[in-house]
């Protein structure tokens, strides 16, 4: 599994973010090593999704700093700069958000062709290989409306991978799936992590987090209450709040 002592590729320091009068992030810090896997857990509304959106520049932050690779995310102003960042950091959402008017294969091919400006034929081969990797070769020509939730989510993962990102963000990607299909998506992510992809996951799948994560962060009320390797955080939580949360959901 990943080398934890490697150079950190994502560094989040003391990030604050408010939506109007509501402060959603109140000074969040975390670090993820290259090839590492971080899991963020916590109750609904604690700002987990907001944090991921901040990391790939979809949501501007009010205070603090975020560095991803060579990008200082909090200093990026123009769309062009943010676009450069998003080639390195890709996010997969809970609701898949596939483009409904395109087939699975076209969904995967679109960004490399139009954003990375790569040749169509080469992209087609690569997209087909990615669909194979997520186990969906047979569904290449299906439209999203014809696919199950789990299949759509795997297409969404392939679509993100097609951008050859350095870091993948997963926002509760199994949250909208029924229990049987959860496994197929989790296996896809696990295979990615084992191939050395840097991943940050927001998840409610505690068993999975324990299995895959190097570091688990428990967030509540816009702060990181406690963090540590999974064995420590899950088996010997030091904070009362963490214990309460874990006993509630386990």
């Amino acid at each position: 599994m990943p080398a934890t002592n490697a150079e950190p590729i994502v560094v989040v320091r003391d990030v604050h973010k408010s939506f109007g009068p509501v402060e959603v992030l109140k000074g969040v810090s975390l670090e993820v090593a290259k090839g590492g896997v971080a899991c963020i857990i916590g109750p609904s509304g604690s700002g987990k999704s907001t944090l991921l959106r901040c990391i790939n520049g979809l949501v501007p932050i009010d205070q603090g700093s975020i560095r991803v690779g060579e990008f200082d995310v909090h200093t990026l102003k123009t769309d062009a700069e943010k676009i450069a960042l998003r080639k390195e950091v890709s996010i997969v959402f809970q609701q898949y958000n596939l483009f409904p008017h395109k087939t699975a294969l076209e969904n995967v091919m679109m960004a490399p062709i139009h954003v990375l400006k790569e040749g169509k034929d080469e992209v087609r081969l690569r997209a087909a290989a990615l669909l194979k990797r997520v186990g969906l070769s047979a569904k290449a020509d299906a439209y999203p409306g014809e696919l199950s939730g789990g299949q759509q989510q795997r297409v969404a993962i392939a679509r993100s991978l097609a951008m050859r990102p350095e870091v993948m963000l997963f926002d509760e990607v199994t949250g909208a799936l029924d229990p049987e299909t959860v496994k197929e998506v989790l296996n896809t992510i696990k295979a990615l992590a084992q191939d050395g992809m840097t991943c940050i996951l927001v998840t409610h799948e505690m068993r999975f987090a324990r299995e895959i994560a190097d570091q688990v962060y428990f967030t509540d009320g816009g702060v990181i209450v406690e963090s540590g390797p999974p064995a420590q955080l899950f088996d010997h939580p030091t904070k009362e709040r963490t214990r309460a949360f874990l006993s509630e959901i386990l």
Partner: peptide, 23 residues
């Protein structure tokens, strides 16, 4: 969310409008 996922794939606003939203 369609705008958001297009943005996260590094599409520009104009590309998003023409290729993803308008169709």
């Amino acid at each position: 969310t369609q705008w958001e996922s297009a943005a996260s794939l590094a599409f520009t606003r104009r590309q998003t409008l023409w290729m993803i939203i308008l169709p």
